[in-house]
Design a protein around this nucleic acid. Sequence first.
DNA 1: CAACCGATCTATACGTCGTATAGTTTGAAT
DNA 2: ATTCAAACTATACGACGTATAGATCGGTTG
Lengths: 202, 202
Amino acid sequence: MAKNQYHHGDLAETLVKATRDLLRSKPPTSISLREVAKIAGVSHGAPAHHFGGKAGLFTAVAIAGHHSLATALEDCLVGVSGAEKRLFETGKAYIQFAVEQPAYFSIMFQTELLNAEDGAYTTARAKPKSVLRQCIKDSASAERLDERQLNGVLVALWSQVHGFAQLWLTGNLGDPNDTALLQQLSLDMLGSLSVAPHINCE
Amino acid sequence: MAKNQYHHGDLAETLVKATRDLLRSKPPTSISLREVAKIAGVSHGAPAHHFGGKAGLFTAVAIAGHHSLATALEDCLVGVSGAEKRLFETGKAYIQFAVEQPAYFSIMFQTELLNAEDGAYTTARAKPKSVLRQCIKDSASAERLDERQLNGVLVALWSQVHGFAQLWLTGNLGDPNDTALLQQLSLDMLGSLSVAPHINCE
DNA sequence: CAACCGATCTATACGTCGTATAGTTTGAAT
DNA sequence: ATTCAAACTATACGACGTATAGATCGGTTG
């Protein structure tokens, strides 16, 4: 809280927030520690003390991102009933999170920019996964699934929404600015789970 | 071919190949132009002339990667019959490509490192997509699908294998070195298309 | 055959970056 | 009041991407 140059209290969080703000307008790769430090009003050497280096700062940002994503996945379900609908909403929320803050989302999974072995990071990134898992587990027909099948569905669903997000953000599915197309494609995709089996039945 | 310092003929391709080799042992982010130039035995300013800059070189590598991926997706189907089996094999091939050369695969979709608007790049990255599309189109029951449904299935499938690849490579699904787990998870996932509808039926 | 010329590559320089290190300041405990 | 660890600054260093001017080559033209 203190505005003194030294010991201003929560520089760490300030730096994380500054990085998050920068991520709204530019990708992780083009963000420099010096730029973050300047925004926070500290010397460019300060971040290293709190985070050990650039990877450390990015890791802290990624951790916050995973917590934020997990929360978003939980919040999208308030007042939503029906197993199918709940799964559908969760998928939409995952994609929405990624699309609304592309750079924030991307840094969360760009392990070569992070201290991927950091315990807090591995713990944090397990949260969205467990929310998805619980969501699937709650679905009515999931009771018939054994642990391995449940995990298969989890991986399949997670992969689907995650892959869609990245493919969309990188322009592989069409113009990333075409929100109408995004709406259509994401719904078609989430709905195609009931279409896909036609293929399996040859 | 000439070993003279000047005009050695195909420096461009030499640089691309050198980059590809580096990608076997380190991620794109940690590769420097100067390092690539040194391997190719040229001055560190040379790459800029051929590719305009780092992004240009990476774009050339990404283009080669997409061609390579498209070829892999085609080659995996020789002698494989049955619509379901062919789709299955294509999915496996996509994942295999990504897992065998993680950095090569990742640079292909890391648009912030590339000249994403480059025509040759956008053309090249459309190839794997069209191979997938044809594969789906060839499946027996796909005849019943209209254009939009077909596209929905394409996006769903592509998203699934692509997302799985990235989640796996970033360690989100388990130890990336556990090949047995990879085998199990990928098969479970690809097979879960017939399990998923249970969820939709509530 | 000789002069030329565009393309290819080198040499050099510049600003920015991440990081390491030594020094300075602060708040709190003794 | 003094001490001390933590927080932050100041400085320096090597590596990087890029721009630019110069050197060198192959091929073409007269």
